[in-house]
């Protein structure tokens, strides 16, 4: 499996791909143990997006549609596809019932090498600006400690009457993303999982959005 993942990454780097859009990024990250929403589910409400390397920040370009009714999917898909014929329309199950949104990311630091970044996500990334950094790959113990005393710990405990979030599942996702990044750091420059939706305790976490930034061909292997 790792060999397949690597092969795909190598091919993308060789093609000169820089930003890997959400659909491809999620397909790869799922293999690395990062939970992602079910694709084209038979039931439930839907999220419909256009995943394109040209638009790393999709919602700014009106490429994200949430809570879409099943009968509207086909028409919406055609509209989105017209905006970028090279993009892929992604139809996913809407993630509902989250108690907190989180960011989990990875990057190479000039001094310390691969690091994993984690903190309150979604709009809180900029508003709170309180992400914590740890060396990648990180251990489950370290990931749990960051979530336990780091910024936003109160959010995960269930703020304002919400149930406590699935902290253990979030810690496992942090470990999985950090291992994946550290293993392929010669090919990947950055990973962004934002937001990761934290569901109530026992129900897990889901990366609602994902992006990979690849290293340039000459700096890649």
């Amino acid at each position: 499996m790792t060999a397949n993942v690597r092969k795909r990454l190598e091919q993308w780097v060789a093609e000169g791909r820089r930003v890997v859009h959400e659909a491809d990024a999620k397909a790869l990250l799922r293999l690395a143990g990062v939970p992602v929403p079910a694709r084209s589910p038979r039931a439930g409400r839907l999220a419909v997006k256009l995943a394109s390397d040209k638009y790393p920040h999709k919602s700014e370009h009106g490429l994200v549609h949430l809570d879409v009714a099943r009968r509207d999917v086909a028409k919406l898909s055609r509209q989105l596809q017209r905006k970028d014929p090279d993009g892929s329309v992604l139809v996913e199950r809407m993630v509902e019932g989250g108690v907190a949104e989180w960011i989990v990311g990875c990057k190479r630091d000039a001094t310390f090498g691969p690091v994993v970044v984690t903190g309150p996500g979604g709009v809180l990334v900029e508003l709170l600006d309180r992400a914590e950094v740890r060396l990648a790959p990180t251990s489950l113990k370290t990931a749990k400690a960051v979530l336990g005393n780091g910024p936003g710990a109160k959010l995960l405990n269930g703020a304002r009457g919400r149930p406590p979030g699935d902290r253990d599942a979030l810690a496992r996702l942090i470990v999985a993303a950090s291992k994946f990044f550290a293993r392929h750091q010669d090919l990947i420059e950055e990973i962004d999982l934002n937001p990761v939706i934290v569901l109530p305790k026992g129900q897990g976490v889901v990366a609602a959005d994902a992006m990979l930034v690849l290293r340039r061909k000459e700096t890649g292997k």
Partner: peptide, 8 residues
């Protein structure tokens, strides 16, 4: 290019 890069 990413949020991660910008905040860390």
């Amino acid at each position: 290019m990413s949020h991660t890069g910008a905040i860390a």
